[in-house]
Design a protein around this nucleic acid. Sequence first.
DNA 1: CCAAAAGTGTTTCACGTACACCCATGC
DNA 2: GCATGGGTGTACGTGAAACACTTTTGG
Lengths: 229, 229
Amino acid sequence: MPSTYKYPRPALTVDCVVFGLDDADLKVLLIQRDLEPHRGGWALPGGFVHVDEDLDQAAMRELREETGVDRVFLEQLYTFGALGRDPRERVVTVAYYALVKLLDHRVQAATDARSAAWFAADELPTLAFDHAEIVAVALARLRGKVRYQPIGFELLPPKFTLSQLQHLYEVVLERPLDKRNFRKKVLSLKLLEELDEVEQDVAHRAARLYRFDERRYKKLVKQGFNFEI
Amino acid sequence: MPSTYKYPRPALTVDCVVFGLDDADLKVLLIQRDLEPHRGGWALPGGFVHVDEDLDQAAMRELREETGVDRVFLEQLYTFGALGRDPRERVVTVAYYALVKLLDHRVQAATDARSAAWFAADELPTLAFDHAEIVAVALARLRGKVRYQPIGFELLPPKFTLSQLQHLYEVVLERPLDKRNFRKKVLSLKLLEELDEVEQDVAHRAARLYRFDERRYKKLVKQGFNFEI
DNA sequence: CCAAAAGTGTTTCACGTACACCCATGC
DNA sequence: GCATGGGTGTACGTGAAACACTTTTGG
């Protein structure tokens, strides 16, 4: 049933920039719009905030509904409210960014009713609305934050090699890192648990697997520890 | 005239955490509410976003209308949208924080029709709605950001002494800093212009005045420079 | 002349950075 | 046996941190 208010209200939406990482580079998950405006164009997953759900819930719901992505790292990014950012009416959107383990989510995105696909973050198609700006802000946030918060692990499988971890930082920070210095640095943090396991099915010496020790990290943070890479 | 929509919409507001600095400590500007709920209680300046103004404009307008504060550093903080944060109806608020030169704004705030007052940031009265949480987030942002962005200068007069600057960092970061190391560090950044002026009317040796060289800062940023204190 | 804050250098230590070779494995 | 990435140590330089006394000015 319709609702009436004394003064006009902006519509409120959420949009999500979903990042994933593969062997080659950083990816962003986009959906193809099935409505005007920009019908058929690529856009960020998102939609209207229901009046009885909070913002984080709305973002998670839209992500699940439109891309099948669920139970991932999700953090509010920035709220975009420029006049005219949506040609139909005034729409304010609370943008989020998500970090997913790409291997877990490759299939769902591709097989969803709505067409969804991963694009290299530095080769995105033209995006609807102001979504290109939102992605730019999300990238900047990710680049800034990955250095002083251990969020990079959200992009990797639970067990990973040090080379995978280094590759992650190289891709996100867009610069090469020295292998020995990188390993020295991350191991000195004492946040990685060395497993008695190695990679499988590689055509060369198998690398040791590590796991991020989240319990230990939280304990150290309480003691004033600051993650930094 | 009233507006009708197919689905109910949250109300959208902006709220501002205004920081100022005096000799003693960091202050926050609050207003006394003249409407229910929390009538007579202290709250952040803020109000509804008009449908024809963008978010930054709305924040600036509310700040001007409610406190007389104008032309100050203002930056979006975070958007708060928990269910029940306003007892009347669903209200989503885009929070901002502002940094003002307290001496410029002491009078207006006190003489405005609405009662406004500065409170020490660590001794705030009970606040309406979830405003205490908003202030906490703003403080965390300020503490984090002051170290790697030259925003602290927004809290000082255009000409200031190195001791004032050090005091600023000590108050915001909540820890004492070594005088010699601090001076060495800030001067090494080459962002302060040493003036041929000293403090006036002090009962001891007058300190030299400095000015933040914003042009130089912007130029250095373009060359990849990163401010850090 | 006393109170109050301004101003000034050196030493030490930790950490970031640069850098090259041998090892294990699968094919 | 060869191609591919895994894994390892040292030397150097920069910058952070610790630390105390003299100078200037007004009252």
